[in-house]
């Protein structure tokens, strides 16, 4: 299953990319699994997701927790806590 990944703010700066489309590996069931998998992709991703507990995620543009399932998602975003307003 292919899914679009988006990165914002310092997560984007550290990964070095704004968005990409990947094939979700079989073993990735949750947001937490996906971050663990992303960390293995190279030093940029390892750095970006080093403190994965502070990173927030959205599935199809809705805020989710790290235990949320990713099956069926078309768009998953990773970003720091928001600071608008």
């Amino acid at each position: 299953m292919s899914v679009k990944l988006l990165y914002f703010a310092w997560v984007r700066e550290q990964t070095g990319i704004r968005e990409e489309t990947i094939e979700l590996p079989q073993e990735v069931a949750t947001i937490s699994d996906l971050m663990t998998w992303l960390k293995e992709r190279g030093p940029e991703f390892a750095a970006a997701f080093a403190e994965s507990h502070v990173i927030r995620a959205a599935v199809d543009q809705t805020h989710v927790n790290h235990d949320a399932r990713v099956a069926g998602a078309t768009e998953i975003a990773f970003f720091p806590p928001v600071t608008g307003g």
Partner: peptide, 23 residues
């Protein structure tokens, strides 16, 4: 509510230094 939910991120620049504002 919008401060904790709307997906915006502030990056401040001061001289030659830049930093992402922390929540």
């Amino acid at each position: 509510y919008l401060k904790t939910n709307a997906p915006f991120w502030k990056r401040e620049v001061s001289g030659d230094k830049a930093r992402w504002v922390e929540a």
